[in-house]
Design a protein around this nucleic acid. Structure first.
Lengths: 136, 136
DNA sequence: CAGTATCCCTCATGATACTG
DNA sequence: CAGTATCATGAGGGATACTG
């Protein structure tokens, strides 16, 4: 029988734990909304549908690559719908789906906490940093 | 007068937008809680204080480096407190601060949405992927 | 026990240029 | 207009080994 070393044992545990995390709904959702551009697209579309180029202008920091990639992943996950109008030139509108809309209250909860407590976090951070500097 | 090219203009916009994002409370909070290990530490400590080694065992996938780094950042932000007992060997306990505790309802909102809707997301994803494959 | 220090490597992002 | 393709970079994360 293969006697496991402590190292081997820990590695197996890690693999199992990682598998668990991949399947954990909360982790999945966090992965999704924590993406830098996802939350911004969600907010941008909260007010109604927008065209690709409108989004590009609404979010001046995003590259085409990132915007496309973000929209694709959101479409794939059923959170955003993509509607192509075959005119010349082409017109593409993006809109929140019903499922995507249910996410807005969650985003709002995050926003509310942030606006209420982020000052405390910043203050704590300054305190911490000044202590570290003082001790040097 | 320096006439700006469209490229220069876009770059300035991007810089300004990035600055805005860095200061946006919601983005800050998302950055914080989206960290892979932060949410797990938060949940682990929701049940009460734990020692460093306990956390290491609670989360078998985390490296010492990452755990320490995560705990430090949470301590810095005033979300977790660190108490050292100068015995031999040393004992260090980590605990949610009051501020850290206020974050739990937000985590719960995320968890609730995830548990309610993640199946829909997964289903949408499969639908999307099968369409893509079919079209090839 | 509770960390540091170091190396390494992948993966995500972004800039740029091109296209149906 | 709404993308795709390609390349370069650099920051984050892990494995490992060492320490007060």
């Amino acid at each position: 029988m293969a006697t496991q070393t402590a190292v081997q044992r820990r590695q197996l545990d890690a693999v199992a734990y990682n598998a668990f995390l991949r399947d954990c709904p909360t982790q999945k959702l966090l992965d999704r909304i924590s993406d830098k551009w996802v939350s911004l697209v969600l907010v941008a579309l909260a007010g109604g549908s927008q065209r690709y180029s409108e989004l590009l202008r609404t979010m001046p920091g995003v590259s085409q690559k990132m915007l496309t990639q973000t929209l694709r992943s959101l479409e794939r996950d059923g959170l955003v719908s993509r509607r192509v109008t075959a005119s010349v030139p082409v017109r593409v509108d993006y809109e929140l789906t019903e499922l995507g809309t249910t996410l807005l209250p969650v985003m709002r909860a995050i926003k509310d906490w942030a606006e209420c407590y982020i000052e405390d976090v910043d203050a704590a951070r300054e305190r911490y940093d000044s202590q570290v500097n003082a001790s040097v």
